[in-house]
């Protein structure tokens, strides 16, 4: 059961509608997807949730709502309204945000930690924190897709470094397309195969698109229940 938990729709910086993205994802064999949008107010959440509900019924695919924090301030705010949506992503690239995202148990995914950087954006301390707080480190396929030549080789080197670190400390790795358009969605087999070229074993690679997203979704569902208080604390009776 494959999941892609980082897709942008036309509601944020994407080009395609929710329906087009969902139908393409279903055709490619995904069981579920997550629209990672940028927070623009309470009304936006309501509008997105209504649209997602409609598309879910029409296409027949699991759809989750996520928000991607672009700054530390935004991340702190999204933490407070965490129960209103399913998945919290932190847009990597900034060293401070990378570190804070790894320190925050409310964060589910740290997206492309090496984004627009010359280094990989992670060190052993951050990765150890990511393990402790169950923050998945993302390998973003779009970053590779839209780059070329020397830039692409640098990005690939940085991703390989992050994978090596994550494997060493057993941090969860997640594979996402990071698509902005339905044409940037990729077949799960392609993404899995690409990750094997970057240093993951085939089984690890398959887990990164099936089991890790499943555990994030399970956690997201637990978080939404009334019994949940904070990470690791919930009402038993």
């Amino acid at each position: 059961m494959n999941y892609d938990l980082h897709i942008h729709s036309a509601f944020s910086e994407g080009e395609s509608s929710l329906e087009k993205l969902a139908s393409t994802a279903k055709a490619l064999g995904y069981k579920g997807i997550c629209f990672a949008e940028y927070y623009e107010g309470k009304n936006q959440i309501k509008k997105l949730q209504a649209e997602i509900k409609k598309v879910k019924q029409k296409i027949g695919i699991e759809i989750f709502l996520g928000f991607e924090a672009r700054s530390v301030k935004e991340l702190k705010f999204l933490e407070k309204i965490r129960r209103n949506f399913d998945i919290l992503l932190a847009r990597g690239g900034d060293l401070e945000l990378n570190r804070i995202a790894c320190e925050t148990p409310e964060v589910d995914i740290l997206t492309h930690p090496e984004y627009e950087r010359l280094d990989s954006g992670l060190d052993h301390v951050s990765v150890k924190l990511a393990v402790k707080n169950r923050v998945a480190i993302e390998v973003n396929f779009r970053e590779i897709l839209i780059s070329s030549k020397a830039t692409r080789s640098k990005i690939l080197a940085n991703i390989q470094n992050n994978i090596k670190l994550a494997k060493k400390f057993k941090a969860p790795i997640i594979l996402c397309s990071g698509a902005l358009s339905h044409f940037e969605l990729k077949d799960p087999n392609v993404i899995v195969s690409f990750a094997t070229q970057l240093g993951l074993e085939l089984k690890e690679s398959k887990d990164a698109i099936t089991k890790i997203p499943e555990s994030i979704i399970k956690q997201a569902k637990e978080r939404k229940s009334e019994k949940w208080i904070s990470p690791g604390v919930k009402i038993v009776k």
């Binding site: 396929f141 990729k186 087999n189 392609v190 899995v192 195969s193 690409f194 094997t196 070229q197 085939l202």
Partner: peptide
Amino acid sequence: QQVLAGLGL
């Protein structure tokens, strides 16, 4: 795996 990865690009 290499060929599948290449097709994705």
